[in-house]
Write a protein that binds this DNA or RNA. Structure first.
Lengths: 234, 234
DNA sequence: CGATTGCTTGATACCTCTCAACCCAGGTGG
DNA sequence: CCACCTGGGTTGAGAGGTATCAAGCAATCG
């Protein structure tokens, strides 16, 4: 279940700007100066683990920012096979759509807190606000680059390479640079990498036997030999 | 090799607008009214089959529109493995980048004619031109949706499903709705679907034996049983 | 022609999946 | 407190799908 409460301190503009580290990005200061636009405030929502936030095809009237926890966006085939497109951590946006419907589903990987913004009017606003549309474009282009990188992984990398790549990617999200603290299950990892649970598990065990990683707990992975892991990524 | 000649009749604005069929799109009429902007004209170039148009990492000072022929954009691993991101046909843009470098390589699938536009100043122009940035955003978001669909295919579909999906997708580009006329080799198809040449060939032969398609020539594929092919796509 | 290129087909290897058993930690209820 | 159950994770045996290696065919082109 999700609880909602109004929050006025949150301005999506500033948040979007902070997330955009590119020539297209707006300076946070400029953004902070803009206020009172229809979509500048959002409502805080909580979702418990594995709760659906929205489904593919739902009417896309809201977009979201993660405050805490992790969210996955994914697609399903009719027989239930799932492909996870990405994991979203604190500060990241998801659910921004061009059309009327979400093109992915979104679910809570862990218990999480997110802020929902009305998409209403964002299009027309963007048409008259260069800074805002730069931020949106920047966001879209970075997502696109990520998706293309992910396609290379799914189409052309072996199981070890996929897992190594995932570990390196995830370790960068962690406080410690060489310890990946996982919020997700083996099932999530498998569906992100286009593998099965068993293959992910076996591959991690193998990497541990080979001395590239340590597995103190199933959700804590220490990257012992970062160079060797990166080598698998070449 | 590529030949260049200046062309003033081509306006990227109008072209982008025509390509954008969405709420964000600019009307061609409005676009035609705008002219004389620094990037409004491009130079026509010709590339012969398999020529590189640009490489991943090259300085991205131009973007392109296909006039005739087919272009592929792709990524490579260090050992040569290749993943094709997409095929671009007449009227489609490619090479639009956020950063300073191309994130993909682009190559001519067939002999082709393309128009190159200077990216120079596009960012700042977009910041002051709502219609233009809407078009750019629209383009980026449609590319993103395509990439996400492609990830699902690469990560979760079997070889037959991949091939069936490709045939249906490509047949829509063809004059005849139920005949796919291929511009690309089996190698291109394989690298687009995350398979090998041999598996693509075998799968096509199997589909023919099963009566779902005809293969009058290796580049002409008639979709005999579109329903059955769509079924494989579910 | 001979050489080359794209494609098909066959035999076999191997990587990943499938199915199954088992372990472990945590939660629940008697 | 302990028995039990559950869910996530690991491991093993075997199957299966796709890759690899190799040969052959047809069309194209010097």
């Amino acid at each position: 279940m999700s609880t909602q409460l109004a929050v006025s301190a949150e301005r999506a503009t500033a948040a979007l700007a902070a997330a955009a580290g590119s020539p297209w990005a707006l300076q946070p200061d400029d953004a902070a100066a803009r206020s009172g636009t229809p979509w500048s405030t959002g409502s805080v929502q909580h979702f418990t683990q594995d709760r659906e936030i929205y489904g593919e095809g739902d009417h896309a009237k809201l977009f979201y920012k993660v405050v805490s926890g992790v969210v996955r966006t994914c697609k399903f085939l009719s027989d239930g096979r799932r492909q996870i497109d990405s994991f979203h951590v604190a500060g990241e946006f998801f659910g921004l759509e061009l059309g009327q419907e979400y093109s992915l589903s979104a679910e809570a990987v862990s218990d999480c807190t997110i802020i929902a913004y009305r998409r209403q009017g964002l299009e027309s606003l963007a048409a008259n606000d260069g800074a805002l549309s730069s931020m949106l474009l920047s966001h879209a282009m970075r997502s696109l680059a990520r998706a293309q990188e992910h396609s290379l992984l799914l189409g052309r990398r072996s199981a070890v390479e996929k897992v190594a790549s995932f570990l390196i990617e995830w370790a960068e999200h962690s406080p410690d640079r060489d310890v990946a603290t996982l919020a997700m299950t083996r099932h999530d990892i498998a569906d992100y990498l286009g593998l099965t649970i068993e293959t992910v598990s076996r591959t991690l065990s193998q990497l541990e036997r080979d001395g590239l990683i340590d597995l103190p707990t199933s959700r804590q992975i220490r990257l012992k030999d970062l160079d060797a892991l990166r080598e698998l990524n070449a």
